[in-house]
């Protein structure tokens, strides 16, 4: 199994079998997010995860409820606003957030969370002290 496949399977496990609700899913997404980034879309009743590592990109679809996907995006908005108050709306925006387990690991975030559209782009900015 290549690195991308391992990652997508880890995402699948994190989202299909959460142990700490939506809050835990978001923590896992941030922990697993590769440096090259991650895109999540909601399409046709599925959560589609595009995972980039190196030159490859792999997509997996997960049959979760739309409300779960929207809750994930809402949690992302809260984390952005914890980092910089009022930087994003619950309904979308661009911001930054850090990993709760390692606040030095920063992410650039762009998301939309409206009834009609739900997307998330997450890019790791890495650890300024050199850890990936």
């Amino acid at each position: 199994m290549n690195t991308t496949s391992k990652l997508t399977e880890a995402f699948r496990a994190a989202i299909e079998h959460p142990t700490r609700g939506v809050v835990g899913i978001v923590d896992d997404l941030l922990r697993l997010c590769p440096e090259q980034g991650l895109r999540l879309d909601w399409q046709a009743d599925d959560c589609l995860i595009h995972c980039r590592t190196g030159d490859s990109e792999e997509a997996i679809d997960l049959p979760i409820r739309k409300s779960v996907f929207r809750a994930i995006l809402a949690r992302i908005a809260v984390l952005c606003n914890e980092q910089r108050p009022n930087s994003v709306s619950p309904y979308g925006g661009e911001g930054e957030l850090s990993q709760s387990a390692n606040p030095l690991v920063q992410f650039q975030v762009s998301f939309t969370n409206t009834p009609a559209e739900q997307t998330l782009e997450l890019t790791s900015k890495g650890d300024p002290n050199g850890e990936p």
């Binding site: 949690r75 809260v78 619950p90």
Partner: peptide, 28 residues
Amino acid sequence: DGTRAEEFSTCLDAGPFHLGTPEQYARR
């Protein structure tokens, strides 16, 4: 918008508010 709401989101008045406060949603 053109899309059905489909669901109804609420939070406990005592919190916690991990997905944001109702005041924030109302203002936005």
